[in-house]
Structure formats: C-alpha cells, structure tokens
Write a protein that binds this DNA or RNA. Structure first.
Lengths: 169, 169
DNA sequence: AGGCTATGGCTAACACTGTTAGCCGTCAAG
DNA sequence: CTTGACGGCTAACAGTGTTAGCCATAGCCT
C-alpha cells in the first residue's frame, strides 16, 4: 500500500527524478512518469497516494545529494558557498524543486533538513543568525541566477566575492 | 486588438491583480478572471493574446508599487531593507509572482527594472557588486520566510540584522 | 487441489486548466 | 444602408491530477 519501499516504488522515484532533472518540475507529469515505466498513469496510485508524495521523495533525494556535496566541502564559508552554487547550477531543476514553495516536512526523512544545514552552521562557528543570513545570501544569488534576473553580462563571481567578503568580516 | 489600453483591459488587469493578491498565482485562472467581470473565459482573448500577457501586466504594476515603496525609503541600506521586506510580507503573492521564474522583459515597460533597482544601488554608493549581493541577501531572506523554510520560531529580525551589519562593513 | 486475498496492472471517466474556432448582436462610419 | 470592428457567446480540444471499477496473476491457508 502507501508509499512503501518496494522495488517498483524506487523505480518510480528514480524515473521522476530523471524527468525533473531533464525538463523541470513541469515535466513531471503522472502520465509522462508512467510512460517511462511502460505503464499507465492510474497505476502509479497503487504505489503512491498522489503526485506530491512522489515529489517529496524526489526532494528527499535531492536534499541528500546536496547535503553530501556540502559535507564533502568542509572549510570556510567560501568553499561551502562554491559547493552550494555548483550543485545548484549542475542540477537547476532539482534545486528549484527542493527549495521553492513550502517544504513537505511530514513526508521527509527526519533530520534531513538539519543535516543539510549543519555544514553551514559549523562554517560560521555556530552562530545561527549569521548562518541564516549567509544561507539567504547564497539562496538569493542562486535563485536570481537561475531565473536570469541579473542584468545580462553581470559579474556574478564578483557579486559572490563581495557578499562572502562582507560575511567574512 | 492586442493588449491595448482600453478601459476593459484595465479592468481585467485590476481583477487579475486582486485574484493573485488574494489567492496566489494559482488562483489566477482565465475562467475565474472572466467570472469576476461577469463574462466567459474565451472573451478575455479579445483583449489579451494569452494568460502570460495578463500576468505581465500584473507584474508591471507590482514592480511599480515596489519601486515606489523603495523610492520613498531613501536612506541607508537598513531602511531600504525594511521597506523591501515590508512590501514582500504585505503582498506575498505579488512578490512571488514578480520575482520568480524568468522575467517577461519584452512585455514590461522599458526602464522599470532599472528604476526598481536604483534605490539600492544608490544606498551602496554605486557599487554594483555589493548592490547585487545585498539584493540577493534580501531576496533570499524574503523567499525563505515566505516559503516557511526557516525553523519555526527562528529569529528572523536577528538574521536580517546580522546580514545588514555584515554588509554595512 | 481449492479458494482468498493482496498486488499491480488496465480502461473509462470526471473536473479542471489554457486555448481555438466560429457564431452573433451592437454600433459607428463611409 | 451596408460594412466592419468590437466584444460578447457556446462548443470543443488537448492536457492535467485523480477516482472507480474491472481483471489477471501469484502466494498462502485450509
């Protein structure tokens, strides 16, 4: 029943992840998803209660990947920021999906959110206010870049440097 | 024809703006919009080529409002940031609509984007790199707050202060 | 072996979305 | 007076998430 851990469930989530990665959240369609597995859309509901449950699984995987990338980049906020931006640019659609709109906290593995945040908190010596400020800066830079909001040809590396310099005191 | 400036067009855009303000972007439906004006959805296409054209008009109005709010708050980056956050919290759906996804630049009044950005550039003494960094910080803070991404009970005022202190050098 | 149930497919259908085609009344202008 | 633009309308299409209900298979229990 439900969102079990059956083999089929994993296949569905993996296909969903690939759909999002290739065509963004709007490409994740129940019919397209079913098509990838050679079945029809209604059959998906034998494995997941609704589309948001599948999305939540994709988000969970993306957050784990990001957490791993950040954990592998221990060091100053500078290295961390570079890893953060690199992940977002390498997986723009996944980053957008996982960091836009309200988090389906109830459908996510416990502790995953904290785990993703931990490297940054450590990098600013445990100051939660500063950690949130740096996080907001990085998230804002990434979203504005992904959305093409900066003027064409803007020096984004420079903006990152300016911001990180400010936070480095 | 097209997206003229007829009285009817203005009524449509105003109704669309109210729909977004009350129920978010997903509440802006061609049928719901038409319903507000006592007509049927297809009739809207006599005034606008498609839905995105209506959205663009709404975005233009929102950006003008935001620009006005920022221009009225000349002073240090602190006052400006307060005004920025205040606008976003007062009109969360409009802020989201206007600052998420790619900008329909071709459908927006010329110079509007620059006008909105100008107060911030002035506040940081014309340093474009720093201006973009501060903008990213403010945008990130606002989006994370609107999306409920911060831990419940987090000291957001404190995070704003920490960030602004860092940028104040 | 015989029967039960769970599993996981299927088709048909519903309500909703944006959008198009084509019809028609009103009204101003040549 | 006729013509044409304007601005409504209904019907319809393709695509969305989702539900109801049917059916074949496979495993288990008596």
């Amino acid at each position: 029943m439900g969102a079990g851990v059956s083999e089929r469930s994993r296949q569905i989530v993996e296909a969903a992840l690939r759909l999002v990665e290739e065509g963004g959240a709007e490409a994740l369609t129940m019919r397209a998803l079913a098509g990838r597995l050679g079945i029809r859309a209604p059959s998906l509901y034998k494995h997941f209660p609704d589309k948001s449950a599948v999305e939540a699984e994709v988000i969970a995987i993306a957050m784990q990947d990001l957490a791993r990338a950040l954990e592998a980049s221990q060091g100053g906020p500078g290295v961390l920021a570079r890893a953060y931006r690199a992940y977002a640019l390498a997986h723009p659609h996944l980053y957008r999906l996982m960091s836009t709109g309200p988090l389906p906290r109830g459908l996510l593995p416990a502790g995953l959110e904290d785990r993703t945040a931990l490297p940054l908190v450590k990098a600013v010596d445990g100051d939660p206010l500063l950690a949130r400020a740096v996080w907001a800066f990085a998230h804002g830079m990434v979203m504005l870049e992904l959305d093409g909001r900066f003027p064409p040809g803007a020096d984004l590396d420079g903006a990152w440097r300016a911001g990180l310099a400010a936070f480095a005191r």
